[in-house]
Amino acid sequence: MKIVVCIKQVPATTAEKRYTPDLRLDRAATEAIINPLDEYAIEQALRLLDAGAVEAVGYLSMGPESAGEALRRALAMGGDDATLVTDPALAGADEWATATVLAAALDRLAPDVALMGMASDDARGSLVPGAVAAKRGVPLLSYGAELALADGTTRIRRLSATGFDWIEAPLPVVASVTDQVGEPRYASLKGIMAAKRKPLETWSLADLGLDAAALQGAALTRVTDARPPEPKPPTERIENVSADEAAAKIADWLAARKLI
């Protein structure tokens, strides 16, 4: 039983973002991290590995060559091997192109569970897991607060409108998990040293038998304009007053806006 965790390298949550003249995020100029929600997917996979429910954990990322650093960092947390799909033709890939490439790579790696984060910080569509599952023709188990493996079935605990459900499907599956699976572990010094010797393979589109032309410039969407958000009116402050006064002032403020 093997899990492959799909991780994306994204700009650091608090980093200053820059754009290239053609309105793409300038990834070279922005500090990069493992997509925070993918760290939860890694944690879930490693917990199953620790518990003996799976034999191996691998990682897969599609991105620029620098995304190899994210894979090394994942390997430092635990797991066995990693694959980077990188190709100049993939710059600016949208969710459709990303899903197409990841599906092809996963067909080769053939894990029992392809595990993903519930969303990437930069695209935020949560579309890649479902699109990959559809392309591969395997079931999707999405938004798991927990992933459980037993007797050839896979289950996720998923929040419902009023409680939670256990949703089940036969292997192999594509699954995605939320930040409820448990806090991601830190890499130990030993883990960081060990990661340097773990195998990291790099594949191009040609290695995957994919044709760059069929990927239509890696995107079916294009950004036609990028601009700063509308300026906000300055914040009004109420401070250094008694609680009674504060309550009256808040009520006045709400009343002036017809909110009470």
Partner: peptide, 15 residues
Amino acid sequence: RDLAAALVGIGDLPA
């Protein structure tokens, strides 16, 4: 989002 993803993956559509 799950259903939208199915449309994108099955139909090769812009999202």
